[in-house]
C-alpha cells in the first residue's frame, strides 16, 4: 500500500501528514509534486494543510487548476480515497470534490486551538475505528474554516448523514461557544456522496501522540488504511 501526500509550494502540513502515515502507522508514503499530473499509483491521497499557492485570491482557488489536482480528481472519481485536511478541504471544495465552501472565520481571526469533535458516523472508511458518538480532541489552525453551503445542499448533507464531524462542547453539545469559526451547523468535516472523499478543517495528523496533547487522530488514519488494505 502507498499513500500520496500532495505538495503544493505553499503546503506546510505535508510533512506532518507524511510523518503521521510513515512514523505512526508504518505505511509507505510519497510526496506528489504539484507540477506532476499523476497520483503515482497511490492507494490513498492526502491533500494537506497550508497555503497552496499563497491563497491570495481565495484559499484553494488557484490550486484546483494545478496539474496534480486533475490526477487527484480522477483518482477520486475512480473511488480512490482522498483525505482533505484544512487547506486541502478548501481545495477539494473549489475543485468540486465536495459541496460548499470555506469562508473567513466569523471572528475574522486565525484560530489555533485544540477543539472537541463529535464523531457523527462510524460506518465509513474514515471513522470505522471510532466509537459511535465519541468525542475527540483535535487541533484546528485556520483563518478560513467557516463551512457554508446553500440551504438545499445543507439539507441534503444532513439528510444523507454526510456530516462526519461536528464541533461540540465537553458535553457533546454543538454550541456556538464550541464552534471555532462560525461554521453552519457546527460542521467540521463532510464526505462526498460516494463516501470516498473526506474534507475536514481540524488536523488529525496533529493528534498522533499524547506527548503533544492528543492521539485522537490515530484511529482515523487506522480506519482508512485498514479499509484500503482489506
Amino acid at each position: 500500500m502507498k499513500v500520496g501526500v500532495v505538495r503544493f509550494p505553499g503546503s506546510n502540513c505535508d510533512g506532518d501528514a507524511w510523518h503521521a502515515v510513515v512514523d505512526h502507522l508504518g505505511v509507505d508514503a510519497v510526496y506528489l509534486w504539484h507540477k506532476t499530473a499523476s497520483t503515482e499509483g497511490c492507494d490513498v491521497v492526502i491533500l494537506p494543510g497550508g497555503f497552496s499557492y499563497g491563497d491570495y485570491l481565495r484559499p484553494g482557488a488557484i490550486a484546483r487548476f494545478s496539474p496534480v489536482m486533475s490526477a487527484v480528481v480522477a483518482h477520486a472519481r475512480r473511488g480512490g480515497p482522498v483525505l482533505a485536511i484544512c487547506n486541502g478541504f478548501q481545495i477539494a471544495c473549489e475543485a468540486g470534490l465536495l459541496p460548499g465552501a470555506l469562508l473567513r472565520n466569523a471572528s475574522l481571526r486565525f484560530v489555533c486551538d485544540t477543539v472537541r469533535l463529535a464523531v457523527q458516523r462510524t460506518d465509513t472508511m474514515f471513522t470505522a475505528r471510532y466509537a459511535p458518538g465519541q468525542i475527540l480532541r483535535i487541533p484546528v489552525a485556520h483563518g478560513d474554516g467557516r463551512y457554508t453551503a446553500d440551504a438545499d445542499t445543507l439539507t441534503q448533507l444532513e439528510a444523507e448523514g454526510r456530516v462526519m464531524f461536528r464541533y461540540v462542547d465537553a458535553n457533546g453539545e454543538p454550541t456556538s461557544q464550541a464552534n471555532p469559526n462560525g461554521a453552519l451547523n457546527n460542521i467540521a468535516g463532510i464526505v462526498n456522496a460516494e463516501g470516498n472523499v473526506l474534507g475536514m478543517m481540524p488536523h488529525p495528523e496533529r493528534a498522533m501522540d499524547v506527548r503533544l496533547g492528543s492521539a485522537d487522530g490515530v484511529a482515523l488514519f487506522e480506519s482508512l488504511l485498514a479499509k484500503v488494505a482489506a
Binding site: 510523518h19 503521521a20 489555533c112 486551538d113 498522533m208 503533544l212
Partner: peptide, 14 residues
C-alpha cells in the same frame, strides 16, 4: 494573542 498563532504546525510542539 497566541490563539492567532499556529503553534502546532510541524507537529513537534510539546
Amino acid at each position: 494573542v497566541w490563539r492567532q498563532y499556529d503553534s502546532m504546525v510541524q507537529t513537534s510542539t510539546v
